[in-house]
């Protein structure tokens, strides 16, 4: 009779290291691109909290960054959108209280950058 196997001998399921999806760039899905106007931003973090793709990086700023009305905003501040992952859904532009994000067609953005 074959040796009885215990659960220790079972084959392990798929076992993945964390966050490998970072290698999969979903930015290519985008047809509209958010254009961020930092001079009008109040760093309220609404766009950051609402971004489904975690594509708006933030940083802690001690010295502060210049935002709306030339004011210095300290603490958590948002940076330029990460276009490697932004799918261009437009939630950030829709929900921004100061309307400092506008959506433009991706082709326009590409044309403007190659000129």
């Amino acid at each position: 009779m074959a040796d009885k196997k215990g659960w220790h001998d079972l084959m392990r399921g798929a076992d993945l290291p964390p966050a490998t999806s970072l290698e999969y760039k979903t930015g290519s899905w985008r047809s509209m691109r958010p254009v961020f106007d930092a001079s009008n931003c109040i760093h309220c973090m609404i766009c950051v909290a609402y971004c489904p793709d975690m594509a708006i990086p933030i940083t802690k700023s001690e010295e502060g960054v210049v935002g709306k009305g030339g004011r210095l905003y300290k603490g958590a501040v948002r940076l330029e959108t990460n276009f490697d992952y932004c799918k261009g859904c437009g939630i950030c532009a829709q929900e921004c209280p100061t309307k400092c994000i506008t959506m433009i067609r991706e082709e326009e953005a590409v044309e403007a950058s190659t000129k």
């Binding site: 999806s21 970072l22 290698e23």
Partner: peptide
């Protein structure tokens, strides 16, 4: 992490 494949605009 970003790079997941939920629809654009999924909450």
């Amino acid at each position: 992490a970003p790079g997941h494949r939920m629809c654009s605009g999924c909450s």
